[in-house]
Amino acid sequence: MNATVEIHALTKRFGRTTVLDHAGLRIGPGVTGLLGPNGAGKTTLLRCLATTLAPDGGRITALGLDPARREQRTALRRRLGYLPQDPGFYPHFTVFELLDYVAILKELTDRARRHRQVRRVLEEVELTDRARAKVRTLSGGMRQRLALAQALLADPELLVLDEPTVGLDPEQRMRFRALVSRLGEDRTVLLSTHQTEDVAALCDHVVVMAGGGVVFDGTPRGLAEVAAGKVWICDEPPAGAVLRWRTAEGRHRVVGERPAGAVPAEPAIEDGYLLLLGARAKAVA
């Protein structure tokens, strides 16, 4: 894999808490999904990559640039788009004014070219009809699409998206997947999510984080195969099973040891993810 991003032994502490513990990662062109429970270090890693947070140790190289060096950090910022987990907005701006302001910050100084960029990203996130609306009047889903629009300004080569589908309804989520899939054809997209179905639908590369480090790095199919031979379907709820749930058909899906009377089931990404985190939790305990 030709790496767009290389992360080596990345470490970040907040007080006495180690949030990233020598995390390492290589990301190439296409769409990479970053999975992990709350507190795994996903947002901190993305903030370090987006240059909004300086690590305490380790090294990042992105697009051939080293963000630890001031001049290269500025050059990297020109070439990346970042959607933070909690984007801040000026509520009294209109949607167009806000994007125009962000475009100026991204050094799009030619007014005609800048406005073409603003109209382009509004169309991509389907907010053209809200261009003159005040930001404070937007719904949560619209604000999330606005946050994505500002990340797409200046046509970045590297997109870093932290929980981009939060607040989107099912139709908007499907449209988002189509947009990101298209973007990943000619650039590098790294997105964190709690939605394993987003990873299955979008990503050709998936990374799982836990405890500040990377515990899986491979393909979505590879993550599903973590649970190969360990996923079962049975008619009665098995006693003592930790990872199980009732399906829409009224049967019980079990991840782990085979219950009595159970038949094998095809593993999915969610099964591999749950088994991976469950095994790690036992090892830590």
Rank of each mutant, 00 (worst) to 15 (best):
R69M: 04
E236D: 14
G222A: 06
S192V: 00
P267N: 12
D129F: 14
P29H: 09
K282I: 02
E97L: 09
D66G: 07
R69G: 04
I60G: 06
T247G: 13
R78N: 03
R70S: 09
R175V: 00
K134I: 03
T196D: 01
L45K: 15
P55R: 08
L76W: 01
G212P: 05
D217R: 12
E126T: 01
Y101N: 11
A62C: 07
T137F: 07
P91H: 04
R251G: 10
D169V: 07
T52N: 10
V199W: 02
T32V: 02
A3G: 11
E266H: 15
D86A: 12
P237G: 06
V226A: 05
R113G: 08
V31K: 04
E163C: 10
R79A: 02
A54M: 11
L158S: 02
A227M: 04
P267F: 13
H205A: 06
V263Q: 14
R221F: 06
G30D: 01
G211D: 11
A248D: 15
Q144K: 12
V5M: 09
A248K: 15
A68Q: 10
I104A: 13
N38M: 05
E97P: 03
S139R: 13
H205V: 04
V207Q: 11
R173F: 05
L10I: 00
T4D: 03
R77H: 07
T165M: 04
L108C: 14
T219H: 14
G36R: 03
A50N: 10
D110K: 15
F96W: 11
A131G: 12
V19Y: 01
R244F: 09
A112K: 15
T52H: 13
R175C: 00
G41Q: 07
A23F: 02
R221K: 13
V263S: 13
Y82F: 09
G213Q: 10
E124K: 07
V5G: 02
G88H: 14
T18A: 09
G229N: 05
F216Q: 06
T109I: 10
D186Q: 12
A23N: 05
A283G: 07
E71G: 13
T44V: 08
L99F: 09
E107F: 15
G30F: 02
Y273E: 03
D56I: 08
G33T: 01
S192Q: 03
G250T: 12
S139V: 03
R175G: 00
L127I: 03
E266W: 13
A112M: 12
G141K: 08
V226D: 04
F89Y: 11
R182Q: 01
P164L: 10
L277V: 06
V95R: 11
F89E: 01
L20V: 01
D21W: 11
N38P: 11
T196C: 04
V189I: 02
L152R: 14
G28H: 08
P238T: 05
K282T: 03
K282S: 08
R136G: 05
R114I: 02
G212N: 08
L99Y: 10
D86K: 14
D21N: 06
A131D: 11
A201K: 13
G184M: 02
H194M: 04
G229H: 03
L161S: 00
R173K: 14
R280T: 02
P84N: 07
R47M: 08
R182G: 00
L243W: 15
T52F: 14
H92W: 12
E257L: 15
A281V: 05
